[in-house]
């Protein structure tokens, strides 16, 4: 009788521990790792901007929250709150793509200069006057 009761308590505790572990893991699940994530769309900055300008609503549904790989020319590199920001913009274009780089990419910025053609992978968040990308990394 005693041992039966003990078994019940033990299995109850086990269930509590397992469900707590699942809850904590779920609660602490990590942010998307852009480097390891498959690219959803590969395109040039011009094409991306043009698509947004033609139909912002539909384009936003297509690209935002997705991992994009973009090819374009560096217009500006700036720093902000410990992160680098690369602006990709082509000659004659009013709009640009503003890419907020991951902090781990900071060192690589030293090798880059205005006018370089580069490839950037990141998550698109939408369009203001420019297309905005976050969690970006350089593709080498």
């Amino acid at each position: 009788m005693k041992s039966n009761q003990f078994r019940w308590i033990l299995s109850f505790l086990l269930i509590v521990v397992i469900s707590l572990t699942i809850m904590v893991t779920y609660y602490n699940k990590p942010h998307i790792n852009v480097r390891e994530t498959k690219v959803d769309y590969t395109l040039s900055t011009i094409n991306l901007i043009e698509e947004y300008q033609q139909d912002e609503g539909a384009t936003d549904k297509k690209y935002s929250e997705h991992v994009l790989q973009l090819e374009g020319k560096i217009f500006e590199i700036s720093a902000q709150q410990g992160n680098s920001v690369i602006t990709l913009k082509d000659k004659g274009s009013e709009s640009s793509v503003i890419c907020q780089m991951m902090a781990e990419e900071n060192k690589k910025m030293l090798k880059l200069k205005k006018g370089d053609n580069i490839s950037i992978k990141g998550v698109c968040t939408g369009y203001l006057l420019d297309v905005i990308m976050v969690r970006c990394i350089l593709v080498e």
Partner: peptide
């Protein structure tokens, strides 16, 4: 002023 809601960065992915 204008901003994108998806550009808000949270510490926890689940909250975002």
């Amino acid at each position: 002023i204008q901003l994108l809601m998806r550009s808000f960065m949270f510490k926890k992915a689940l909250m975002q």
